[in-house]
């Protein structure tokens, strides 16, 4: 009995990566910065995003959000209160978003000309790491209430991020948040990662976050990179 070997060498996520690359270059060419927000559940993605949409609209930018959720449209309804176009992607139990979902929802939606598009991923620190959604900025959120060692527990996701946003910073003291440990853990899994400290409730650090996004947008619009 002679076994026969077929050499294949194919990336399993090739299709996702191709769709993501195409989305990224098309959107950047249109001047749209896509931001993928990833974190565990309850970190405050929706609160940060709500504040971000409001602030950016106040500064005259055209913004919209795609919101991934396992089952409910609660987050999308909260975000729609900002007046920005919001579209829900219900994943029906799927633990992450994929580039094809973003592509098809964008095609069916037409939110008008945009400057920034936010994608709120499903709250999950594992699965979203593997799926490029065509974003130019992947922001990972870490709340002061959830433990400074999260980056060490989920290095794959934290390593894949372009920026880390510490959320609920107004609760740092009551939670005895160890800032030095959190920063050192973030730097251990992703040396050089920019870290921004924010509170969606008090507004602390929101300006710096907005400035970071706008700087990224100007930089990438001037010199779009082919792929990540």
């Amino acid at each position: 009995m002679t076994p026969r070997i077929l050499e294949i060498r194919k990336n399993l996520l090739k299709r996702n990566d191709e769709i993501a690359r195409e989305l990224r270059s098309r959107l950047l060419a249109d001047g749209v910065l896509v931001v993928n927000l990833v974190s565990g559940p309850g970190t405050g993605k929706t609160s940060l995003l709500r504040r971000t949409l409001t602030e950016l609209r106040g500064r005259g930018f055209r913004v919209a959000a795609l919101v991934g959720d396992l089952a409910t449209d609660n987050d999308a309804r909260r975000l729609a209160e900002t007046g920005a176009p919001v579209r829900q992607i219900t994943t029906d139990g799927l633990c992450h978003l994929e580039a094809a979902m973003v592509e098809s929802h964008l095609a069916a939606w037409a939110p008008g000309p945009l400057d920034l598009l936010f994608i709120e991923n499903v709250g999950n620190l594992v699965c979203p790491a593997s799926y490029d959604l065509g974003e130019s900025v992947r922001a990972v959120l870490l709340s002061v209430t959830e433990g400074e060692d999260k980056p060490l527990k989920y290095p794959t996701l934290f390593h894949s991020a372009d920026v880390a946003v510490l959320t609920k910073i107004d609760l740092a003291e009551p939670c005895e948040f160890d800032r030095a440990a959190a920063l050192s853990n973030l730097a251990a899994v992703r040396p050089g990662i920019p870290v921004l400290e924010t509170s969606a409730r008090t507004g602390a650090g929101i300006d710096a976050w907005i400035d970071f996004l706008l700087a990224a947008r100007s930089r990438l619009a001037a010199d779009p990179l082919p792929g990540r």
Binding site: R4, I5, E7, I8, R9, K10, L12
Partner: peptide, 12 residues
Amino acid sequence: RELELTCIQLVE
């Protein structure tokens, strides 16, 4: 970060 199907072994 590889996730790659490298080869398949078949039996005639």
